[in-house]
Structure formats: structure tokens, C-alpha cells
Amino acid sequence: MRVDVDTAPFIIDRVRPLTGSVYVVRFSRNEMQFIPGQYLLIGLPGSARMREYSIYSGTQDPYLEILIQEVDDGKMSKALKKIKPGKRLEVHGPEGKFLSEASRVAPGKLLFIASGTGIAPFHSFVRSYPQTEYRLLHGIRTRDEAYDLNTYRKEHMVLCTSRDQRGDFSGRVTDYLAANPPEPDQQAYLCGSSQMIRDAIKILNASGIPLENITTEVYY
């Protein structure tokens, strides 16, 4: 359901830091309906600039959240990091169909692969369907970048850390895939960097997973 922002403004509740450059913005939901994997167009009042951010919160949460990586040349990511509670956001959407079929996948056949903040749509999915059988591979630099780790069941998640030894696997997420090829009957969803996605698709194809069973969302 789309909400008329003129009659139901989206108001900032809080900004929650996760690392020095990654944070979560929580704001009013206004009864907006969405499915996990969709994104919102976010802007500041009076500015024509809008940016796409995947919804981070679950469908049962009474608020909306987005996960943001502050970047050096990102005016929006810098502005939202400093925004104060009570301020208004321009919000349009939701849009997208990235995970629209994921809830229909047979138990044990769901494979999520993310790098960095590309975990956002999967966080939304797991919060929305906490009993779903899934396997989540998250590629990060250090364990400190394992955002909201308590959301996920430990037995369903593999942290792949490329710059420290504190993950479940030391190396890139694609290194883990190459060393532990998935079964060919998996339905794979990939979100994150374009390089990770390209490399992962090659490994998944070599493992017998056809392109029609691979869905991607490129973040950067």
C-alpha cells in the first residue's frame, strides 16, 4: 500500500550506528505494506535528490528501517547519518521484486548470498519469515561488519571474513562457495557488489545451478 506523504509524513525515530560508516535509519511506517526485498526512494524535504535503499525491517515491524553505508562522495548517506529524531523524510515506494518468490521456495532450498550492506533485503526476509529454512552466506571484511547478527539462526549462516580470522570462514564469500559448492537444486539470491555477483554466478553455474534459478540485485 502506498501512503500519501502529504497527509502521512514519514518521521525519523532514530539513527542507530552499527560501525563507523554503517548505520540504520528508523522512521514511521504509516501502514505501508511491502514484501521483503523491496526498496524505497528516500530524500530530504526540499531536495530533488532521491536514493534507493532496500527495506531492512520486517513486515511485522511497526516501523520502517533502511541500512546505509556512508560513502565519501555520498551527499545523501552523509546527511542521513546526521539527521535528528522528529525530522521528516520524503519516501516513495515500495518498489522491486527481488525476493517476491523466495517465500515459496521449498524448505532447505533457499540460498542467500550477500556482500557488505547487500544483506539488507535478507535481513528483512528473515525478520518477516523467521521459521523459514534458509542458508545465508555473508561476505564482509571483519566480524565487526556482521550487522545485527542475532537476527539469524547460527546454524543457517556463514560469515566469510576477508581481513580477519573471526568469521566462520576466512576469505571472500566466493572463496567459500568455490570450496563448498551448493547442491544444484538450490534457488539462489545474490545481493551486493557487481564483482561478487559475477564471480558467484560462475561458481553457481559450475555447481549445476541454472541461471533461471539465480536472482540478483546489484548494490555497487
Rank of each mutant, 00 (worst) to 15 (best):
M1N: 14
M1P: 14
A8H: 15
A8S: 14
D13F: 08
R14H: 14
L18N: 05
T19Y: 15
R26D: 12
F27N: 01
R29V: 05
R29C: 06
R29F: 11
E31W: 03
E31L: 01
F34Q: 01
P36H: 13
Y39Q: 04
Y39L: 02
L41N: 14
A48D: 10
R49L: 03
M50A: 05
E52V: 03
S54N: 08
Y56N: 03
S57R: 10
G58S: 11
T59Q: 09
T59N: 07
T59S: 13
T59C: 05
Q60D: 11
P62V: 05
P62L: 06
E65R: 08
I66F: 06
L67D: 00
Q69W: 09
V71W: 12
K75Y: 11
K78S: 08
K78A: 08
K78I: 03
L80Y: 04
I83Q: 05
G86K: 13
R88E: 13
L89W: 05
H92W: 10
G96T: 15
S100I: 09
S100N: 09
A102Q: 02
S103R: 13
G108E: 10
K109P: 00
K109Q: 13
L110M: 08
S115D: 02
G118S: 12
G118P: 12
Y129F: 15
P130S: 08
Q131N: 14
Y134K: 11
R135E: 13
R135I: 02
L136W: 05
I140E: 00
A146Q: 04
A146V: 04
Y147R: 05
Y147S: 02
K154D: 04
M157Y: 10
V158G: 07
V158L: 07
T161S: 12
T161Q: 08
D164M: 09
D164A: 07
Q165E: 13
G167E: 04
F169V: 07
G171R: 09
D175P: 09
D175H: 14
D175M: 06
E183G: 10
P184D: 04
Q187H: 15
S193C: 06
S193W: 11
Q195R: 15
R198K: 15
D199V: 08
I201G: 00
I201P: 00
K202Q: 11
L204F: 06
A206N: 12
I209Q: 00
I209D: 01
P210Y: 11
E212V: 09
E212T: 12
N213Y: 11
T215G: 02
E217R: 04
Y219E: 02
